[in-house]
Design a protein around this nucleic acid. Sequence first.
DNA 1: GTTGCGTCCTGGACGC
DNA 2: TGCGTCCAGGACGCAA
Length: 272
Amino acid sequence: MPELPEVETVRVELAPHVVGRRIVEGWGFISPTAKFDQAAAATGATVTALGRRGKYLLASLDDDRELVVHLGMTGGLFVRPAVDVPESGEAHLRAWWRFDDGNLLAFRDARRFGRVAVVPAGHYESLPTLFAQGPEPLDDAFTPLGFWKALRASDRRMKTQLLSQRPVAGVGNIYADEALWRAAVHPARRRISRAQAFELHTAVREVLAAAIANRGTTLRDYRAPDGSRGDNQFHLDCYGRSGLPCRRCGTVLVHRTYDARTATFCPRCQRS
DNA sequence: GTTGCGTCCTGGACGC
DNA sequence: TGCGTCCAGGACGCAA
């Protein structure tokens, strides 16, 4: 499932194909939840930059708007020649944009958890999570002290707080489990010390930076724009390893459900 | 305002 | 082999 490292990989590899290109036609899947039908609104605009905020891809347009794409759980963006015109009913196709160079950018999303929006530049009020999310984890604005203060401001479980995108942007289930394991913080803890928050801060940055270097984690659906897999699944210490020995102490890792989300952790290293 | 839970959605794993 | 059930999860809405 695309989290920050996967979205960053998509951004870097997609940018050369879309920046400077004019969108000559767009199409969005019409659904009852209207999550994709804004795709066509970008028609006629030129992409001037491709950025990212947390798990959101932000394509700046030359008419002071932004095309916002969230990949959800199973979404992927793929470039292909526009001569390969999407057929109506193509499996899992939710949106596409045809560019002036003859290429097509296709957005496929099997489970429809993704989303497409066209908004005035910098106005994210219609996307509450994007609007309210915390600092970028690899920016200087993400400080240990600020992170600790953000965690202290809530009584929710650490795992839930990380997934909320409020203390820090871009962390999903995989990297929340990895960071909590690395910092030896139990996912269900509601309060942690300043020192533990500082360790978790370091862990968040380390696991995300390593995953970006590995071009993301491919467990099931995630693919880069060229269809290739990431490599980070071979470097996971915790996520998906329930029932296997902890790489630190040898205790069998377990998984539990907290706030309707599965967490994998070491019951010995990560004391509640 | 905060918290926790339900909903959306469908492919894959699993059991019978 | 085929069918039914369960699980996975990010964002968001809603009730308490």
